[in-house]
Design a protein around this nucleic acid. Structure first.
Length: 556
RNA sequence: GGGCCGCUAGCUCAGUAGGUAGAGCAACGCCCUUUUAAGGCGUGGGUCACAAGUUCGAAUCUUGUGCGGCUCACCA
């Protein structure tokens, strides 16, 4: 692009282009910057590390309890960045670290058999039994819960099990290096501590699970400057001098462990929660450690915020200590929409995941984004269109469907399901012919909608169509209104061109019966569903079906 | 005490290429002789917390102030 072109184009965007500063012009020339935060992060990673054959993106947590939506935010944030990198043709390794060699510190409130678990405090969580008896350990149970559900939302990391790594001696070199740099590490960790909190007395960058009783209640007695490490256990009195390469219980303390692994795996990107991301926090000290002790630049990062919950994910889940996890989300939101929630929100902003009436709005928002992507709805401007389209792409579990999905608004879907008492096959039968792909998505959405209606929606949202013969208590006026509706509208329901025509006929029916339309509506809803209100009557009659409505109303 | 984040319409929030302030809901109005839990159209409404600075131009960048929140300094 030569300068005259820039100038011409610049005039369009910058009315004051002719007087703009050089800085403004430079900014303008770079204006093709990525719109989505995942793309921006991907570009930052590439800019920071340069062109590489392989980029490593990492995430991980300690499975010391139920892995909740907050933890999930980290996984999906990384996954979105991984996709953005891959979309740029990069080769990416996406690792997820299960820190299952951490100590079992306290028993979470929502665990079964707390007395049993109590006995294993101070053990590594990988050696605590699974209180459900399903998996080989407490840690494994939580890992399996997550690993089995992630594919549903299109997330496929390479899992790394830290207990296995440490016990296999994988990090022996890293531990030795930390011991050599012991004094320097101490200085780094003390940097942001005030006088009262400086490390007191002897400090070791390694800790040991006792080989006799498995607890971490040990103290280091010495290091021989090479591979030999001595310790004793305060619980069982065991004393031992082991070799770092074979001493299975030895591990690095957290703030050294993390940076050591950044170096070991050559991590280029890893976000962290806000608890890690303040000065003196673990990400901050780890940054110093990886540079000064392991000689590697810290990864590109960002801070993600916490997630709040609004409404209840189900009637049964109000027990104490209940945390909301990914399966809870998937019962109410179809997988694309789970991804959409996270892809559509910048990681460093807090947001709430709703299980109440907001669910309807979230579905509507997603549908709108979908229409914009497919050009079925105009976006305000090109920028909005491009951003919405990108969010839509990133929200897909695999790839974008081959044609625009058939949209059934969530609220309408709920009503249809209530009419058909949750029978999805019957519901599908009322829709126009769909492709296999479209039907699959509707079925998925219907399962969520039905769960939501039954478990999360407010009581007055639900209704059930009466069975013929189940007669409502109506006054004479009401009975007259219902008869009028039946005889002047329902009997020729199929002759109306559209819902609007039916609506008109409904009002005409009230007039014929000599009653207020209000009364007719109330009476009709009472007769059909036993409530004072319901979905818009005109469409509702058609949805229930002429035969069934007649069968019900014939009692009057 | 250190650090971080937020403060935009009545409410919930978009708005991080600096270029005339936006959406949804609420409100108000009009229309379809009819909003009964998927009606349509339209209108009003903001000192973008406050102050100063940079700039031709600031919600946007800088500094300071206020209010609210989070986080670290013990452990991961």
């Amino acid at each position: 692009m030569d300068f005259s072109q820039i100038a011409a184009e610049g005039q369009r965007f910058l009315p004051y282009f002719h007087t703009a500063k050089k800085y403004d012009i430079l900014m303008f020339m770079e204006h093709k910057k990525a719109l989505h935060w995942a793309d921006q992060t991907a570009e930052k990673i590439i800019a920071e590390w340069g062109e590489k054959d392989l980029y490593t993106c990492a995430s991980g947590i300690t499975p010391s309890g139920t892995v909740h939506v907050g933890n999930f935010r980290e996984m999906i944030s990384v996954e979105l960045v991984v996709r953005a990198l891959r979309d740029r043709g990069k080769n990416v390794r996406f690792i997820y670290s299960w820190d299952d060699y951490d100590v079992f510190r306290k028993v979470p409130l929502n665990m079964p058999q707390p007395e049993l678990l109590e006995k294993y405090l101070r053990f590594p969580i990988t050696m605590v039994p699974d209180p459900w008896g399903r998996d080989k350990s407490y840690a494994r149970h939580h890992e399996v819960d997550v690993e089995s559900v992630l594919p549903q939302v299109g997330i496929y990391p390479e899992f790394i099990y830290q207990a296995d790594r440490y016990r296999a001696g994988t990090y022996a070199e890293g531990m030795k290096r930390a011991l050599e740099m012991r004094e320097h590490l101490k200085t780094i960790l003390d940097k942001y501590r005030d006088e009262d909190h400086k490390i007191q007395g002897e400090w070791w960058p390694v800790a040991v699970f006792c080989s006799n009783c498995n607890r971490d209640t040990t103290e280091i007695d010495g290091w021989d400057g090479d591979w030999g490490l001595s310790y004793h256990c305060d619980s069982c009195g065991h004393r031992e001098t082991g070799d770092l390469r074979t001493l299975k219980g030895a591990k690095l303390v957290w703030r050294v462990d993390w940076p050591m692994r950044w170096n070991f795996e050559k991590v280029d990107f890893e976000p962290a929660g806000k608890d890690h991301h303040s000065q003196g926090g673990s990400f901050d000290t780890s940054k110093h450690v990886v540079e000064e002790v392991y000689g590697r630049k810290p990864p590109v990062t960002f801070r993600y915020d916490f997630i709040g919950i609004k409404g209840s994910p189900g009637k049964m889940s109000s027990s104490k200590g209940k945390v909301v996890d990914l399966p809870d989300l998937l019962r109410v939101y179809q997988p694309e929409i789970v991804r959409y929630l996270f892809a559509g929100t910048r990681p460093n902003t807090e947001f709430v995941i709703s299980f109440d009436l907001d669910v309807i709005k979230i579905y509507e928002d997603y549908d709108r984004t979908e229409r914009i992507y497919w050009g079925a709805e105009k976006a305000k401007d090109e920028e909005v269109r491009a951003r919405e389209a990108r969010i839509y792409e990133l929200s897909q579990v695999t790839k974008v469907p081959s044609a625009m999905p058939y949209q059934v608004p969530f609220r309408h879907l709920c009503n249809l399901l209530l009419i058909h008492q949750g029978d999805i096959d019957k519901l599908i039968a009322t829709l126009p012919a769909l492709t296999e792909e479209q039907e699959k998505l509707i079925r998925q959405r219907a399962v969520c909608a039905w769960y939501w209606v039954q478990e999360c929606a407010p009581e007055d949202f639900r209704f059930a169509v009466k069975e013929p013969g189940d007669k409502a208590e109506l006054t004479d006026d009401e009975i007259r209104a219902v008869r009028s509706l039946r005889d002047s509208v329902v009997v020729k329901l199929e002759t109306f061109a559209d819902e609007k025509m039916i609506a008109e006929a409904v009002y005409k029916a009230a007039e014929l019966a000599g009653t207020d339309p209000k009364l007719l509506f109330r009476a009709s809803y009472q007769a059909l569903i036993g409530k004072d209100q319901g979905p818009r009557l005109a469409g509702f009659l058609g949805a229930i079906g002429k035969e069934k409505v007649l069968a019900i109303l014939s009692a009057y």
